[in-house]
Design a protein around this nucleic acid. Structure first.
Lengths: 183, 183
DNA sequence: ATCAGCATGTAAGGCGTTACATGATTCA
DNA sequence: TGAATCATGTAACGCCTTACATGCTGAT
């Protein structure tokens, strides 16, 4: 039995709502999920193949393909739902965070403060952009919280907003400190 | 020329202060850095070998080894310092964040709300513990900010405090919402 | 007609983890 | 004496990214 790679769980989770193609899955990962998880085609397609082999998903023949394009829909099986439930019922999670930005700040002593400030400002710019997106999501979702699916999306988006706002506050403070202490 | 793996930069950054052994480096990574970066022996020792081969670091023969133990000290070379400076002067950073916790929350629709609450509480517990550590660091460092090295450590620790406090606020809100909407 | 985007997939390689192997030393 | 920790390293393996390969379709 294949170990539960996280990408498998992402796919099972997405398919637990409705059948999707590999391409759809990629789009969804690049959409609202990208703030806390990533995945490339090079991991998605092999994962689909191995999940099918394990009987956790299967090709959905009955989904009609409107476009003239080749589209291979997959749907979750009962075994797949069970697997998903088991994973969800384990409250322990492994969060793997790597901030190259903080690494650069940490080693900032090896150069001028302006370098660190530039690094922070670059981060700040990116976060501001993404925060705007998150706030639009959050606002839209806040009106439809009674639909259970939206609730969970709302929670993850709120997480993003909360932490991104914290990032921006830190950027301000950090820049101030660095400017004060530049000779 | 070896590409700049991040672990290489961590090692160069740490060695830019003073000579260290592989074991020392591991300890430092597991110390104040662990909140935003990780690294195992299995990556550190090979990285040391390849950095030495590239001439970015070298064995420090002159460092006297007080203990009876085998300790191989490495020191950074001029080429290594240059490499570090080049990396630091590029203000673009890649931050790679993977929150399994949020993945579970996102797919919470597939089980009862209690599962999601348990997942959040587990996260909350871990974050609370780590936040306490960070606050001790921050408090200690705040008294010695005039020493330049401490300033950069202080900044990364402050980042941790800011985001961890945001995490905890979110945990409260999220749990409340989930309880309200449990049938 | 051409180009962007849709859509599936493979191949090579990098990076990193876990587990293992080995042995010395300090401390109780 | 035995356990914990210091200390270095290797091996196997897993996972993922990047780049490549292929071909179709819809819009301009």
């Amino acid at each position: 039995m294949a170990k539960d790679r996280k990408i498998d769980m992402v796919i099972l989770g997405l398919l637990s709502h409705n059948p999707l193609t590999g391409y759809d899955i990629k789009k969804q990962i690049d959409g609202g999920i990208r703030f806390f998880w990533k995945g490339s085609f090079g991991s998605i397609y092999p994962a689909l193949a191995s999940l099918e082999e394990s009987g956790l998903i299967q090709k959905a023949e009955n989904v009609k393909n409107e476009s003239g394009r080749e589209r291979i829909y997959y749907e979750i099986t009962d075994a797949g739902r069970e697997k998903l439930r088991i994973w969800l019922s384990d409250s322990k999670s492994v969060n793997d965070l790597k901030y190259e930005m903080l690494l650069k700040v940490f080693f900032g002593g090896a150069t001028d403060n302006e370098m660190s400030i530039a690094t922070i400002e670059e981060f700040e710019k990116e976060i501001s952009r993404d925060l705007a997106v998150l706030q639009v999501y959050k606002n839209n979702l806040s009106h439809v919280l009674d639909q259970r699916d939206h609730l969970f999306f709302y929670l993850t988006v709120s997480f993003g907003v909360e932490t991104y706002e914290g990032y921006l506050r830190w950027c301000q403070d950090a820049k101030k400190l660095l400017v004060e202490r530049t000779d």
